[in-house]
Amino acid sequence: MASTEFCCAVDLGATNVRCAVLGRNGEISGFQRLEVSGIENASCITAKIVDMIESAVEETGVDIGAVGISTAGPVDLAHGSVVNSPNMQAGEIFLRDPIAEAFGVPVCMLTDCKAGAYGEYVFGGHGDASTLVYLTMSTGIGSGVISKGEILQGADGNAGEVGHFVVDTKYNMPCGCGGFGHWEAYASGSGMPRFFAEWLRQQGAEFEKPLLTSGQILFAARQGETLCSKFISEVAEINARGMHSLVCAYNPDCVVLDGPLAREYADLLIGDFGGYLRMPEVCVTELDGNAPLLGAGAYAFSSILEGNCRAL
């Protein structure tokens, strides 16, 4: 009989994949991390995840009852795959069935932002929220929504792709998905440096030092550098448009911010977005970047008990 005390959680992002064995109270052990940015072979990514799960289970010496997968989207839940993610270059990545076949346990998957939302709901102290929105600002931008204790999935499992809200037509920045003016083309870790270059060009300005990352731009703004401060003020206005749309779409009473940019620079990045609806509580995660991993595990435990994920 499969264990109901331990599961394995996987968090596949555009840059790294993380894996760990989780106990029912969110105890993390056997933690594994591997960089996957630049890997273009989908089967190779799946094989590496299988190896990581094996290593985590071997290190902890426990039996797992299920695997929960958090992944960058979009996803195809019917086939258990990631489908042409704009922030990964591997095409369609089949995860659910190969992992179920490798370990003989139920496997469930959901997008990383939904996993993050569920992690915050279960382990982040937000279980009393009627509607919780988890917003991550990382390589991309996305959200997950918990309403009355239920994950908002959408028809294919891709509800909450707020990074593709149109927030600007002035600069009309290209997005990795092929669209223009999308939120993550301006304020994500991957989009902000390109937006900064275009913003400088339209300002007729030059920056004396090459800034390669969003973190460097934000650090310079925090130090009071004039051009970077002015630019980040514009990013904050764009973020305010995205936040306003998010609040109008989901009417949350709580918004939890996560991702490396939000955890470090939320005070610079979020402008005033009040207006049409009641303002929700906005806070930064206290789960130290582990909300998606914890949420994938919590969802796996729920699946063991309720039988709502795919078994062999």
Rank of each mutant, 00 (worst) to 15 (best):
S190E: 14
G65R: 10
T15A: 04
V36N: 14
P86L: 09
S37I: 10
M1I: 11
Y299K: 11
D112H: 06
V284H: 01
G297C: 02
P280Q: 10
G289T: 07
S85A: 14
I49S: 03
L212D: 14
A115I: 10
S302N: 13
H126S: 08
A266I: 04
L305F: 11
A117H: 08
N308P: 01
L218N: 05
I39Y: 12
E40G: 05
V145L: 04
V50Y: 02
E40T: 15
F180H: 14
A311Y: 10
A296T: 01
G178K: 06
S43E: 15
Y171W: 12
S229Q: 13
P106D: 04
F301K: 03
P280H: 01
A159W: 07
V167A: 07
D51H: 10
I53Q: 08
V162H: 04
A78M: 09
E306R: 12
G144L: 11
L268N: 05
T60S: 10
Q89I: 02
E54Q: 14
S245A: 15
L287M: 07
D11V: 03
Y134A: 07
A159P: 05
M173G: 00
D11G: 00
R241L: 04
L305Y: 08
A78P: 00
S138D: 08
C108D: 11
C7D: 09
F103D: 05
D288V: 05
T15Y: 10
D288G: 01
M192H: 09
S55V: 11
Q202N: 10
F103H: 09
L22N: 11
V36F: 09
G125Q: 00
G154W: 13
I141E: 04
V145T: 13
V67F: 06
L287E: 09
V256R: 00
R96V: 15
C113Q: 09
A90E: 02
S147N: 06
G125D: 04
S147C: 13
P74A: 12
